[in-house]
Amino acid sequence: MKKTLLISFFSIVCCFFLMAQKGDSPMVMYVDGEVWYEGVNASPARVYTGTQLGTNGQIILKNKAAVEIIYKEKFVKLNKAGKHDLSKLFGTTTSNMNFVQRFSNFVSNGLDQSASEKQLEKSYLKNQNNAQGNIRGFTDSGLAGIMPIGGNISPETTEFYWPDAGAGVHYEFQIIDSLSEEMIFMALSKATKLSIDLGGLYLKAGKTYYWEAYHVREKAGAGLIQNENSEEKSPRIYFKITPDKQQAILEMLKQEAAYQETASKPQQSLMEAMQLEEAGFLYAADQTYQKAMHQDKENPLLKRNYAAFLARWQQLSKAREVLSDSPDK
């Protein structure tokens, strides 16, 4: 009986040991570009995603290559060309901080951050680096030079534009139903701008659509072909067709005493733009700002508000441009 129990116990221990051994080597989770592994006393071998490496040896990265490896729950990302010693990379273990220590750090950090008003402000500002006024990111997020940038759009003539991809590139512009993926409109364009009467298209009120523009190049004998590098396209911009509301918002604003009492035209435009933005008519708000800027180019109030509007909607580069023209800067 004792013998059976002992054999069973050791079998279980051995099983655990083997299971632990199975996952006990560095594993390549992602590879981009040319990466090699040179084991101890072994010739270099090409590394692909999923390759199991030895714990010693070197990882060799060619130019522009990147690799991600996990070993014993330690994650390492390499993107510098050259040789990297695995024993050095994984020699140090990950932090051994247990749950109680992490909890105590969390509580003490909280207490430190709220110890004084200055500390509170400091931690608030630190947090602001990660947060922003809208959900799309703290950068242009690939939206630079793109309009309309989403929100509500009235079914009227709308000018779509996107960044220039250089000479010899044409663009395949599409408007697609976001739910059914049905193509509503498609056009090939040489320019990075397309003026479309949305009222003339089969777009349903209240429905969401998206637009995007692919890069297409001319190939000898093959005509225009869509670029295989799928990164060469504009991002998808979702918008909702909202008829009548835009006009109603402006009519309501015009009834307001504050609007009527304002003699300054730029101020009225500002009010209109803000109202439109609040109702999600981003394209119309942008048009209103632009029209107002055209009428009064040097108005600092307009410039700052327009720049703030652009910054709120991931047009940071354009916002900087607007501000850099500012005479009081």
């Binding site: 996952g23 996990i70 729950e73 330690k74 932090s95 992490r102 969390f106």
Partner: peptide
């Protein structure tokens, strides 16, 4: 967000 050990990354080897 805060009490997980973010320095440790577990690996899922069954999914690509």
């Amino acid at each position: 967000a805060r009490l997980r050990d973010t320095t440790r990354v577990k690996r899922e080897a069954r999914i690509v």
